[in-house]
Design a protein around this nucleic acid. Sequence first.
DNA 1: GTAAACCTTGGAGTCGACTCCAAGGTCAAG
DNA 2: CTTGACCTTGGAGTCGACTCCAAGGTTTAC
Lengths: 139, 139
Amino acid sequence: MSLRVSQVAEQAGVSPDAVRFYEKEGLLPQPPRSPAGYREYDPTVPQRVRFIKGAQEMGLKLAEIGELLEIQDRGACPCGHTKTLVERRIAEIDAEMARLSGLRVELAEMAKLECPATDQGDLWPCEVTFIKRGGERVG
Amino acid sequence: MSLRVSQVAEQAGVSPDAVRFYEKEGLLPQPPRSPAGYREYDPTVPQRVRFIKGAQEMGLKLAEIGELLEIQDRGACPCGHTKTLVERRIAEIDAEMARLSGLRVELAEMAKLECPATDQGDLWPCEVTFIKRGGERVG
DNA sequence: GTAAACCTTGGAGTCGACTCCAAGGTCAAG
DNA sequence: CTTGACCTTGGAGTCGACTCCAAGGTTTAC
């Protein structure tokens, strides 16, 4: 039996619109249609959609996932390519974590600051911190 | 002396378009105009723009920065509010770092996988990993 | 036979922070 | 007096991954 778009969507945990969107973007093959024009999906399609969601949760973009699927569909082993993608993503994650960790320190320091008795003109401690940062960056 | 939009932009390290955009969004006051209609900025404005950039690098959204500036402009001490914003952002950062760190582990494991001799039908190890993840999530 | 719940399409709207464009006005230098 | 570098405005375009809509056709249940 074939599946309708909303059944695929439900089984994969996405919206029917998303399924149609993936098809439009070339991530899902165009399925055969019923006489009335309804999409009739192969029962393996929800798995493919879950693959998309899984890869997406790994931080890959739809375009990248599309690349992977395309290579896979052509029957070539995409592992090398996948590895490149994955390693690039790991590097991005490392960079982002370093950035966030530095940021966290600065924010935590900022959150410790107290308000009363400003000695910096008409600026408050937190704002002074912000502005000093801006000044450092540029000047 | 007053500054023109591109001078403000240069001193703050942004584009003239960005300066006009901030004005449109209410983050910068509408400056007086020259007879020809040119914006004539107070020399403190680049500092305000750097404040915006600084806060932005902290991960605050323009709308939030706008809130801060508005309170500041009204003469009220925004420290409590700033603190709320900053603490919220810290919580977000912690959540994001936890997510990324888990992700990194999974990706690193994936990158270690080797290609040859698939024993899982017509899927490659990396894809199997992806799909299994999808399957776990949903089923 | 009719109402609800699906399906189809194309196209617009969303968020965020801009950027880019066109079509014109202004100003300093040579 | 012209060239070129600025300025003005409003509005459209960008990226990403959808969501929502209208206006119609179909299928299913009662």
